[in-house]
Structure formats: structure tokens, C-alpha cells
Simulated scan of single mutants.
Amino acid sequence: MGACLMDLIQNILNVIVPPLMIISLFIVYPLYLIYKLLHFIKRLITSENVAGKVVLVTGAASGIGEQICYEYARRRARLVLVDITDDLLGRVVRNVRSFGSPEVISITADVSKEDDCKRFVEEAVKHFHRLDHLVNNAGIARVKLYEEIKSFSDFSYVMDVNFWGGAYATHFAIAHLRKTRGKIIVMASSVGWYPFPRFSFYNASKAAVITFYETLRTEIGNSNIGITIVTPGLVKSALSQTEPAKSALGCIPMASPEQCGKAIVRSACRGDKYVVEPSWVNSLYLLKVLCPDLVESCNRFLFITSNKTAPPINGLHKALVSADHKSD
């Protein structure tokens, strides 16, 4: 009897909730747009001055992460640069100083390891006695059609770096960020919501990142910690310029890491909740929501059928594991 009653309630809700939602949107949405406009104007006026503040960036040795460091340095922030590739960090440290950062330290660490994440957060706070911005930029990609995968263990590291790396660092940094009313900037990707072929596990890791930080934003909303989720399109980088990646990515226009880094820091200082760079990528989200079958058909034709003979990327050199979203 109880099960039948619940089924009846669900059937009634199936009928009445959709039209009620549409009616509510017609009433509420204009007011919501006004609120968003006023909020945007406020953010433009009250952009944060990060001079002297402490910013920790993972995946800082190259790509988008490197450019984020330079943009913070131009704004005279003090920087903690974290990367797995120690030999590349020295050059970035020198450049950061020349761009105007008053103080910078570098830490070699693998974000996929919980102990490493705890260590670099503790070292940053021990050195500077505070933490204002945590930039979870570290990430890697593996490119292969799902049916071509021989060993799933080859792809587990993608999730370990892209998802768990940010989750670990955030866990150890939250208490310090709460004291400074700081910010978390997390590098997701437009493929977290757009089903880009040959990147299935990378796409899944980025989708997990988006959902995790949207949930975290709700959980810590009263602690004055801002969370900015970055979903860039394709960015020109070392990995995206390899021949296998070029075959998989086709002729999609790429943004420059410099352009992306500037947009990310600018939006983070404004307190934006989301950053999409370049902004035209937003139109793909609208297309996916309104015409999902069309998106699926186009992807199959453009990226799978035409690239069936494209050689897969079977591995990444340690330098490419330097956590800079080289496929973004």
C-alpha cells in the first residue's frame, strides 16, 4: 500500500512540477537577471587587490599554470609554486621575480599523493604565515579511444591528479583560507560538460571536479571562501601540439596560455564563480543542452570517423605530467 501511494505521488509530481517550473521561471528570471547585472557591476568595482597576499599555484612550471603565476606576479602577490618537475620550476621562479612578485618559493611535489599535498600547504603557511589564494591547476591528460584501452591502470593517474590532487590540497588549505577569507581557483575544463571523443577519462575527471567544487561551494558558503571554477576551451600547449593530439583535436581554434592566465586571475580577483575562456565556448554548452543528439552526431562524424586512423597517445613524458592542463 505504501509503495503504491509513493508511486502515485511521483506520478502526480511528474505532471505538475514541469509546468510549475516554467511558470516560476517566467516570473523569477527577469529579477534574477537584474540581480546578476548588479552583482557583476559590484564585482567590477570591488576587484581584490592581491599585492602582498600569498598565492599557491599547483602545476606552476608550464602552460596555463605558468601564466597564472606571471599574472599574479604582475599584481605583486607573493607566490608558492608547486610542480612535479623540479628542473622547470627554476626558470618560472626567476621570471616571477622579474615580473614583480616581492617573494616566491618553489616546492616539488606530486599532487596525486595526499602526503605531498599536506606538505606543500604546510610549507607555504610556515614560510608566509598565511594563505590567500589556492589555485588547483595541476592536471594531465591521456588521449585514446575507449575501446583501444588495454590497461585501465594507465588511466587511473588521470583521476588521481585531476580530481584527487585538487581535493587533497583543498582539504588541507581550507582552515587557512577561512582565516583570510581567501579564494579557491580550480581548473576544470569545458569537456567536463561537453563530450569530447578520445578524452573519456579526462572528461570524466573534469566533470567530477566541476560537481565537487559546486557542492563544496554550498557546504562552505558561510565561511567566506570564494570558489572560482575555470572551464577553458582548447589551449595551445606542449601536449596539444604533438602529432597524435593534433589528429585527435582536429582544427579546433586554440587560445593562448597567456590570454587564459590573464582571464583566470582577473576573474578570480573579481570573485567570479565561473570562468570560460575563450568566452565563445559557452555557446557549446547551450548547444549541448538544447540539441544533445545533434552534438553527439557531429562529434561522431568530425572527431571519431574522420580520425579513426589517428595514432593514440600511449604515454606522457614526465615533463608533460607537470600538471598544466596541456590538453585544455
Score class of each variant (00 low, 15 high):
Tyr72His: 12
Tyr168Met: 09
Asp115Pro: 00
Ser240Pro: 12
Gly165Asn: 08
Val96Cys: 15
Ser267Ile: 01
Ala51Gly: 13
Ala310Lys: 10
Ser240Glu: 07
Ala255Tyr: 02
Ile12Thr: 09
Ser101Tyr: 04
Leu88Glu: 12
Cys260Ile: 10
Val209Leu: 04
Arg178Ile: 15
Pro311Arg: 06
Leu131Trp: 00
Ser322Ala: 15
Ile23Met: 10
Glu219Asp: 13
Leu249Phe: 15
Ile45Tyr: 05
Ile220Tyr: 01
Ile140Gly: 04
Leu131Val: 01
Arg94Gln: 14
Tyr70Thr: 06
Tyr194Arg: 03
Val93Asp: 00
Ser200Cys: 12
Pro195Leu: 02
Val281Gln: 05
Glu277Thr: 05
Ala208Tyr: 04
Arg217Val: 06
Arg130Ile: 09
Phe201Leu: 04
Asn307Ser: 15
Pro278Trp: 08
His127Val: 14
Leu44Ser: 03
Thr46His: 11
Ile227Lys: 07
Leu89Ala: 00
Gln67Met: 06
Tyr70Arg: 14
Ser151Asn: 14
Arg94Asp: 15
Val111Leu: 05
Gly139Gln: 08
Lys113Phe: 13
Arg217Lys: 14
Gln241Trp: 03
Val93Thr: 00
Ser156Asn: 03
Thr228Pro: 02
Thr211Ser: 14
Ser156Arg: 07
Ile12His: 05
Gly182Trp: 05
Ile68Gly: 03
Asp115Val: 06
Asp110Ala: 01
Ile9Asn: 10
Ile9Tyr: 09
Lys126Leu: 01
Pro312Ile: 15
Phe199Thr: 15
Ala60Asn: 05
Val17Gly: 08
Pro18Phe: 04
Val275Ala: 01
Ser223Arg: 10
Phe212Tyr: 12
Ser190Gln: 11
Asp87Glu: 13
Arg119Phe: 01
Ala77His: 02
Lys42Leu: 10
Ser101Met: 04
Glu122Trp: 02
Lys144Val: 14
Asn222His: 13
Val104Phe: 00
Lys236Asp: 15
Arg266Phe: 01
Ala124Asn: 08
Tyr35Lys: 08
Ser156Asp: 09
Ser156Pro: 00
Tyr146Thr: 15
Glu148Thr: 07
Arg181Ala: 14
Ala188Ser: 13
Ser306Phe: 03
Leu8His: 03
Ser101Ile: 02
Gly250Val: 10
Asp293Ile: 00
Thr58Glu: 11
Ala175Asp: 15
Ala109Leu: 07
Ser267His: 08
Cys117Tyr: 08
Gly65Lys: 02
Ile227Glu: 09
Ser240Leu: 06
Cys4Ile: 05
Leu290Glu: 04
Thr46Glu: 09
Ala169Pro: 02
Lys118Asn: 14
Leu31Ser: 12
Arg91Pro: 00
Ile27Met: 04
Glu243Trp: 09
Thr108His: 00
Cys69Val: 05
Lys36Ile: 10
His127Phe: 11
Tyr168Ser: 11
Arg181Ser: 15
Thr242Gln: 09
Gly65Val: 04
Gly221Lys: 01
Asp324Tyr: 10
Ala255Asp: 12
Ala138Arg: 08
Phe26Leu: 04
Ala109Tyr: 07
Ala138Asp: 09
Ile229Phe: 07
Ser283Cys: 10
Ala61Asp: 07
Ser327Ile: 15
Leu290Arg: 02
Thr228Phe: 00
Leu320Thr: 10
Ile184Gly: 01
Thr215Asn: 10
His171Asn: 14
Ser153Met: 05
Val191Arg: 03
Ser297Asp: 08
Val15Trp: 03
